[in-house]
Amino acid sequence: MKKLAVIYHSAHGHTEHIATHVAHGAKSVSNTEVHLLKAEHFVNSPDELVKFDGYLLGSPTYLGGVSSQFKAFMDATGRLWRTQQLKGKLAAGFTVSSLPAGDKQSTLMSMFVFCMQHGMLWAGNPFLPEQHTGVPYEEAVNRLGSWSGLMAQAGHSTSAESFASGDIKTARMFGKNFAETLHRISCRTAETHLETLHDS
């Protein structure tokens, strides 16, 4: 059983909506325990992160970066960085803004650098945009064309569910792919460990 945490901040419910679909996709992989948790939860208890095998990180994009609440979560992990307690764990990122671009790449890059400083491994969003195969744009997987992480567009509606169906489909596939990758890495690590023991 692998324990996975979907850690997010959401001011208006949009990022939370995507987070639930990411978690749903991850839960579809057998032997995966998925926890949907707000970033604020870890500000005063960052040590709880250690019990998870992987992290799916989500934040809205505000002025080209993560929200202040999500940044507070990142900053709270300082003592874990000093002891490299998150080294080798798998991570990925997702973000939401109201525009197709909205400088969401900057948000994903800040998450990536955060994870690299902790010595983590990074999983991207390995799906070709389906609109190039004739799927209607709003229904297409990875319609926004992001491979470094998951991007979703909330639109200007106040509804937390105002997403194109393609973004929802992508979120579920993103979560499923992450969980599958986590299991593959874990299996390979175990095989390597056994080979090392055998050789010694």
Rank of each mutant, 00 (worst) to 15 (best):
M1Q: 11
M1A: 11
K2M: 11
K3N: 11
A5P: 10
A5Q: 05
A11M: 06
H14S: 03
H14T: 00
E16R: 13
E16M: 05
E16T: 08
E16Q: 15
T20C: 12
H21R: 12
H21M: 04
A23C: 05
A26H: 12
V29Y: 09
L36S: 08
K38R: 15
H41E: 14
H41Y: 15
N44G: 14
E48P: 10
V50E: 14
L56H: 07
G58S: 01
T61F: 03
L63H: 01
S68M: 03
S68F: 06
K71E: 12
A72D: 15
A72H: 08
F73D: 10
M74S: 10
M74P: 06
A76M: 03
T77H: 14
T77I: 09
G78M: 08
R79Q: 14
W81I: 00
Q84V: 00
L90W: 07
A92Y: 05
A92V: 01
F94Y: 14
F94P: 09
T95C: 06
T95R: 01
T95K: 02
V96P: 05
S98V: 00
L99K: 12
K104Q: 12
Q105W: 08
Q105N: 06
S106V: 00
C115F: 02
C115G: 02
M116N: 12
G119F: 07
A123V: 11
G124N: 10
N125H: 12
L128Q: 13
P129W: 08
E130P: 09
V135G: 08
A140Y: 06
R143G: 01
L144K: 02
G145F: 11
H156K: 08
T158K: 10
S159W: 02
A160K: 03
S162T: 03
I168G: 05
I168P: 05
A171K: 08
R172I: 00
F178M: 05
F178L: 05
F178A: 07
E180F: 01
T181L: 05
H183E: 09
H183C: 03
H183K: 03
R188Y: 01
A190H: 14
E191S: 06
T192W: 15
T192K: 15
H193F: 12
H193V: 03
H193Y: 10
L194P: 00
T196G: 11
T196V: 10
L197R: 15
D199T: 06
S200T: 07
S200I: 05
S200R: 15
